[in-house]
Design a binder for these strands. Structure first.
Length: 226
DNA sequence: GCCCAGGTGGGTA
DNA sequence: TACCCACATGGG
């Protein structure tokens, strides 16, 4: 991968940390809620995921045992606000069933073993791709697996550090090669990227003049955040 | 009404 | 391997 950076990934993190303060992430109350949120948020605005999760809470269904036994059509209606509700209902139910029968209903057990071993295990589930797997590992199981999401791509593309055509694996390998494997660092970094994207790099209202990274990297034409 | 959002899996060449 | 497409709701 050809990386044209004026700053290292660690420098960028330090700048963002200085700007935003200490950020810690995933807005969930327990590991299983992270898993549910990670699946529900696939290509979906987080606001809609919140509606679906609140519905699950109201229905007393936000636990592996209940989801493993729930009537699929009922689950579809409960998570409907999150979109793709038929797909997501089926996948959530299958995952919950496996969690209960093979892993004592425990997300940490599902994510045990070596990092890449746990990651491969997660990737075998229908509906868990690389980003969802890494989100579950990092935010539910507190394991140092760097998450590449649309925000990460957009930001580093606009920084001119990546082309945007890299595969998920290439980007993850790059981040994990350049950064120390620390769960707290990966957590904070991703939280900072999400915050940065939401404040400065949304497509409709780019505002890079005040972006905390503006003096740090050679943005070139990407400064306009087009 | 149109565009987009914290992806994934299946099909085709 | 590299595209292309379906999947679906709610907010701007």
């Amino acid at each position: 991968m050809d990386v044209k950076a004026k700053a290292s990934l660690l420098d960028i993190h330090k700048t963002l940390q200085a700007h935003f303060g200490a950020l810690k992430w995933w807005p969930a109350r327990h590991p299983f809620e992270v898993v549910v949120g990670a699946i529900l948020t696939q290509n979906t605005a987080w606001k809609n995921v919140e509606l679906a999760i609140e519905n699950l809470r109201q229905a007393n269904s936000l636990d592996p045992q209940t989801l493993a036994n729930i009537v699929t059509e009922d689950l579809e209606q409960i998570i409907r606000p999150a979109g793709y509700f038929r797909q997501k209902a089926e996948r959530l139910k299958l995952l919950a069933q496996s969690l209960v029968t093979a892993y004592q209903g425990c997300v940490e057990t599902l994510c045990s073993g070596s990092l890449e071993e746990a990651r491969s295990r997660l990737l075998q589930f229908k509906g868990i791709g690389p980003e969802t797997a890494d989100s579950i590992l990092l935010y539910a199981a507190k394991r140092p697996s760097f998450v590449i999401d649309a925000y990460t791509r957009r930001i580093f593309e606009r920084l001119g550090m990546i082309s945007g055509s890299e595969t998920y694996t290439e980007l993850r390998t790059y981040f994990m090669r350049e950064l120390p494997h620390q769960e707290k660092l990966f957590n904070a970094y991703h939280a900072e990227l999400v915050q940065l994207a939401k404040l400065y790099c949304l497509k409709r209202q780019p505002n890079c003049i005040r972006c905390p990274l503006v003096d740090m990297c050679d943005y070139g034409q990407t400064l306009t955040c087009g």
